[in-house]
Amino acid sequence: MFGKKKLAAAAVTTNPAPAEGTAWIPADGLEPIHVEESAEAEIAPNQTLWEQFWSIFKHNKVALISLIVIILYIVVCVGAPLFAPYDPLAQDLSQGLAKPSPEHLLGCDKLGRDVLSRMIYGGRISLMIGLFPTLVSMTLGTILGITAGFVGGKVDMIIMRLADICMAFPSLLLAMVVSYTIGPGFLTIFLALSFVNWAGTARVVRSEVLSLREKEYVEAATSIGVKRWKIMLRHILPNCLPTLIVMLTNNIPGNILTESSLSFLGIGAQPPMTSWGLMVYQTKSYLDRNPTITLAPGIAILILVVAFNFLGDAVRDKLDPRLQEQ
């Protein structure tokens, strides 16, 4: 790595025999002896799952901080009533556009609602949109992708053409269309994001499966007589995991961002409920007078997205046993 200090040459711990004389030889020095390698020297020690998980963060401070940040976000948003100092909907017009103060740490919006409280409650929507459509769409995408890759033939063709059709719609446009038919709201975003994202997952999983099924260990399992669906579950799916986890940590912040854009366009969370994207939208015209109330939710999104990305990289590196050997 650059910037690190140059490592000094290490002395190798051998004990060279003196060149002269024989005085150094112990009395029983020439007795035959059977030396065995110690078991530990032979192979790398094993780790339990928990140790493996923890070791991701032991040497990677960035990943550790990211994890803590994400956990904090979740704890605070889930326990919103405990942490929020005010009712997010309570208006106090006397405090309209109040600057940050000890009473209102991040100030108030134009209706005098406490921004910090609104952010804590709004985070619930943002996080939910980040997590649930991602889980739904990725589960669907994985199942379809594996089926397409493993079964092949016509099934593969149909699934992949469906995926192409879904990918052809930009998610923003699709969400707009859905919101005009069933009305804006949480469900709209949920459906729109699930519908679009499965296709991306399915494509990646399929190509992964296509390369994995040519692996020798899949052939070995076939030669043992393992059934096809079991090969899929035991030998192919687990080896797709690193890719899936990276996609997961990309999709979650991606969806949070999309939700922000949708809310910003007015077809996401509906007032008086709020989300971070909506908060940016609603306060944007006061940017010059009271920037905190716009910037705070924006920065909240930024930090969360970055944390997810760092975490994803770290977990992927650790989950691949082959990468560990280096």
Binding site: Y217, E219, A220, S223, I224, G225, P238, N239
Partner: peptide, 22 residues
């Protein structure tokens, strides 16, 4: 499938023929 009990194979590449996740 049941006949496979009688005939097995040892592959060339011990790195590739064992699933790294098991």
């Amino acid at each position: 499938r049941s006949q496979r009990k009688q005939m097995q194979m040892v592959f060339q590449d011990p790195y590739a023929s064992l699933n790294p996740r098991l």
